[in-house]
Structures are given as structure tokens and as C-alpha cells.
């Protein structure tokens, strides 16, 4: 780890001011990506701005016809929340499949989507539900938020405050985990929302993406059979030592079926 200055602001304004004043600063949420990166000396931020003391970033509440989850809420709280289990149980299940208990007790929703790891689980849930990402400046639709591998629409001094998830009629998440990292080799989130069916795929490509062909097929027939007629193009998928693109393409279909099955209950 290289030396850095550590800040623990008590308010969002103070955090935003630190980010503006120190262009090489990094936000610290659960630290589950940032700290290993620092330990390996793969990043050299001038300052770390710890969001852990800002109470308004944390918590889960019902809002309108849906859920609002504070950006600094750890996965474990989402996993065990009665409210989440009642309103959008698929999100509790998704959170419960992230890493291991230690990761879930520290890692946060906001940290995960701001990092936008191509194999993270949350991007699938956020895009799959058609959620809205709230920041210190604006609201960003999920479809506009994830812009590329480890890239988002966030401006350098913009901080995610919460994510609002409209309640889908039904939803399911199925994940094929990497046995080493437990990130998703492929994860598929399927939701039937008021605005139509949404299918979001993580792990398979460089960034979470929607499988529109399947969305259309599910609109006509919301059963696992809808997957059978779909082609998943391996050419655009990741290939690495854990899974070839062909295999990932196949897993997208298998996980999609399982997610649909879960959504059907």
C-alpha cells in the first residue's frame, strides 16, 4: 500500500467537497475491491474518503411501489432484510449469493455498482429491475448507468446515495459462480415489471447487458420454454481460463431458464 490521507466525512456535502478538492481521491465504501488493489500497489490514490460515517447513505425503506436501498448498505443487510424479502425477494437472494459472509458484511451496493466489475451481481439486479441510481447530483436510469467494463456514467465528484428499485411483478436471479472468486461466471436476472420484461446478464460480457430477444420472447410466454428459441452470440462474450465464450453463451441460457423458474416460484 502506498501512503494516502484518510478522511471520514460526517456528511455527503463534506464528502463531495473532498472529492472536488482532491482529484486523486478515491471513495471508500466496503473496500472489498479497493483495499486488495491498494495492498497490491495497483492503485495510488492521494486520499481515501471513507463513506462509513454518513448515516443517510445507509438503510432500506419502502418508497412508492418499490424499495430504496442506501448506497452504503452492506449486502448482508439486503440479504436478511424482511422488507426486501417481502417486496423483491430476488434481490435478497442476489445479495445472499455475493462472496461469503465476510464480504457481505462489508461490501456495499453502492460500492459494487460504482466499481461495475463485469462479473459483479448487483449490476444484474439494478438493470434487471429497471432501477434508478440516485446521486448527489441527479437520478440515472439503470440502462444509462453502466457504460462499459468497470465504467459508469458517474462524474468524478459524483457520489451514489441510493438505488430505487421499482417492485417487479415477479423476478428471479440465477448465478453460476466462479469457484475461486465466487463472482458470476454468468448471472441472469429476469423481471416482469410494469414497463415490460427485463433480462439482465452479468459475468458473460465486458459489462452487464440486456438480452432483448429473450425479453420479447418472455413477453409472449413467461416460461422457461421461451429460452429455447433464443440465440446467444458467443462472439461478444468473455473468454478466460474459467470459461470459454461458447460455454458462457450456453450458461446464459441455462441460468436464464433457472431465473425464470425462480420468478415463477
Amino acid at each position: 500500500m502506498y501512503a494516502f490521507d484518510y478522511h471520514r466525512p460526517q456528511s455527503l456535502d463534506e464528502a463531495a467537497r473532498l472529492l472536488r478538492e482532491r482529484p486523486e481521491a478515491k471513495l471508500l465504501a466496503g473496500g472489498h475491491t479497493l483495499l486488495p488493489t491498494l495492498k497490491q500497489r495497483l492503485a495510488q490514490p492521494s486520499d481515501l474518503v471513507d463513506l462509513g460515517a454518513i448515516a443517510e447513505l445507509r438503510g432500506i425503506r419502502e418508497e412508492g411501489n418499490g424499495l430504496t436501498i442506501g448506497a452504503a448498505t452492506p449486502h448482508g443487510e439486503v440479504e436478511t432484510s424482511e422488507l426486501v424479502r417481502r417486496l423483491i425477494p430476488a434481490l435478497a437472494e442476489l445479495a445472499g449469493e455475493i462472496g461469503d459472509p465476510q464480504v457481505r458484511n462489508r461490501g456495499t451496493l453502492g460500492g459494487s455498482i460504482a466499481n461495475n466489475d463485469p462479473a459483479a451481481d448487483w449490476p444484474a439486479g439494478v438493470v434487471g429491475c429497471g432501477a434508478v441510481v440516485r446521486t448527489t447530483r441527479r437520478e440515472i436510469a439503470a440502462d444509462d448507468f453502466f457504460t462499459g467494463m468497470c465504467e459508469t456514467a458517474l462524474e468524478p465528484d459524483e457520489i451514489i446515495t441510493a438505488v430505487h428499485f421499482p417492485r417487479p411483478k415477479r423476478a428471479g436471479y440465477a448465478k453460476f459462480p466462479n469457484p475461486a472468486s465466487r463472482y458470476a461466471v454468468v448471472g441472469v436476472f429476469v423481471a416482469e415489471t410494469d414497463d415490460g420484461v427485463r433480462v439482465a446478464v452479468t459475468g458473460a460480457g465486458p459489462c452487464v447487458f440486456r438480452l432483448t430477444a429473450l425479453e420479447q420472447a418472455l413477453t409472449a410466454d413467461f416460461t422457461p420454454n421461451a429460452v429455447d428459441g433464443i440465440e446467444v452470440d458467443a462472439a461478444e462474450l468473455n473468454a478466460d481460463i474459467h470459461a470459454s465464450a461458447d460455454y458462457r453463451a450456453h450458461l446464459v441460457k441455462v441460468m436464464a431458464k433457472r431465473a425464470i423458474q425462480k420468478a415463477l416460484g
Binding site: 466462479n178 469457484p179 475461486a180 472468486s181 481460463i241
Partner: peptide, 22 residues
């Protein structure tokens, strides 16, 4: 699960951490 894999061209260990070595 376990397999130490080297890149055939460069000789770099591709499974150099618990993120990749299961």
C-alpha cells in the same frame, strides 16, 4: 478445482491468486 495455469506464450502464472486459483 485446483490448477496452476501458465500462459503458454509469456510464461506468466494466470492463477496467481485466490481470485483465480480455486
Amino acid at each position: 478445482l485446483e490448477h496452476a495455469i501458465y500462459d503458454r506464450e509469456s510464461g506468466q502464472l494466470l492463477t496467481g491468486s485466490f481470485m483465480d486459483y480455486a
